[in-house]
Computed example of a mutant assay.
Amino acid sequence: LTRMLHLCRSETFQGKSGVHMPFLEYLHKGHCRLKVTKDFMQTAVNAFAIFVSGDIMDIKNLPASYVLNSARTIAMMKVEREKLAATWHVVKGSTPTPNISYEVLEKFRPLFKHVNAREIARLNLSDDRILSYIGTHPDLNRHQVGVVASRYLQLNPRWTEPRYLNLMNNLLCGVPMTFMRRIPENTYLQLTHQLFYHIRACDPLQRRFYLTMMMRTQALGKSYSWSAREVSRLGLLLAEVSGSDLSAI
């Protein structure tokens, strides 16, 4: 690939820089290596060529720093999901999953949805920042949050306290409703204003359940008593409010 990069370097014509896709005959699957240079555009095109025409091994050989710095661009590529998922192994390297830092996860945010659910559950959930990061990630599906929530409930017997519920956010969609029914009604009143804006993985049945709990007497009460402040706390639950309750606000 070094030879290929030499042949396909950026050129200047009439003061304008141009880049070139690498020749496919120089792309040998399983043997591609990306050389990061100061020619950022050509480096990006070369990386794109590896994602499109390379294999999983080529993806795993990408520099971790490049993947982190270009995570948003990589996430927009229309390539096989397996290739996008392989970027996690690039970033993780030899670091044990529980030792992955919050800072690394934050840079990896655009690609985080492709990480395996069991792998996410191995992260350091005792770190409030990591727990909140997972709980506020908008692209995780119900399976992912379910596996992580199950793991967190095992790690933290005090998860029903408002402090921890407010960190879980979307992970509440992975908690069985039978568990949530055991939580005192006044606990729901102590949930943050932002929490129900993050429950994207919940199905309609779960959202209606949480709306019912929020409409209990010791929480927000009936809709006719709601002010703008109460309405703003409902977040995505507002879509489940019936027409008659909406008209009573």
Rank of each mutant, 00 (worst) to 15 (best):
G54A: 05
G54K: 01
G54V: 03
D55T: 02
D55K: 08
D55Q: 01
D55W: 05
D55S: 03
D55F: 01
D55N: 09
I56G: 11
M57V: 06
M57H: 10
M57L: 07
D58H: 03
I59W: 03
I59D: 04
K60H: 06
K60N: 14
N61V: 04
N61F: 02
N61D: 14
N61A: 13
L62M: 14
L62E: 08
P63Y: 04
P63V: 14
P63N: 11
A64K: 13
A64Y: 03
A64C: 06
A64M: 10
A64V: 02
A64N: 13
A64H: 08
S65K: 14
S65H: 13
S65T: 12
S65Y: 15
S65M: 07
S65F: 15
S65V: 10
S65R: 09
Y66T: 14
Y66A: 06
Y66W: 11
Y66S: 09
Y66M: 05
Y66G: 08
V67P: 11
V67F: 02
V67K: 05
V67G: 08
L68P: 09
L68A: 09
L68N: 07
L68T: 00
L68W: 07
L68H: 01
N69Y: 07
N69V: 15
N69E: 11
N69H: 06
N69I: 15
S70E: 02
S70T: 14
A71C: 10
A71Q: 04
A71W: 14
R72F: 15
R72D: 11
R72N: 10
T73I: 13
T73Q: 00
T73R: 00
T73A: 03
T73K: 00
I74F: 00
I74D: 01
I74Y: 04
I74C: 00
A75N: 10
A75S: 10
A75R: 00
A75I: 00
A75D: 15
M76L: 14
M77F: 07
M77K: 02
K78A: 11
K78Q: 15
K78E: 04
K78S: 12
V79T: 11
V79C: 15
V79S: 15
V79F: 09
E80G: 11
E80H: 12
R81G: 05
R81C: 04
R81F: 12
R81Y: 13
R81D: 11
R81K: 12
E82I: 10
E82S: 14
E82C: 13
E82P: 11
E82K: 15
K83R: 06
K83F: 03
K83Y: 09
K83A: 01
K83S: 03
K83P: 01
L84A: 12
L84W: 10
L84Q: 04
L84E: 12
L84N: 08
A85G: 03
A85F: 02
A85K: 12
A85M: 08
A85E: 07
A85D: 02
A85T: 01
A85N: 04
A85R: 06
A86N: 00
A86P: 02
A86L: 06
A86G: 02
A86V: 12
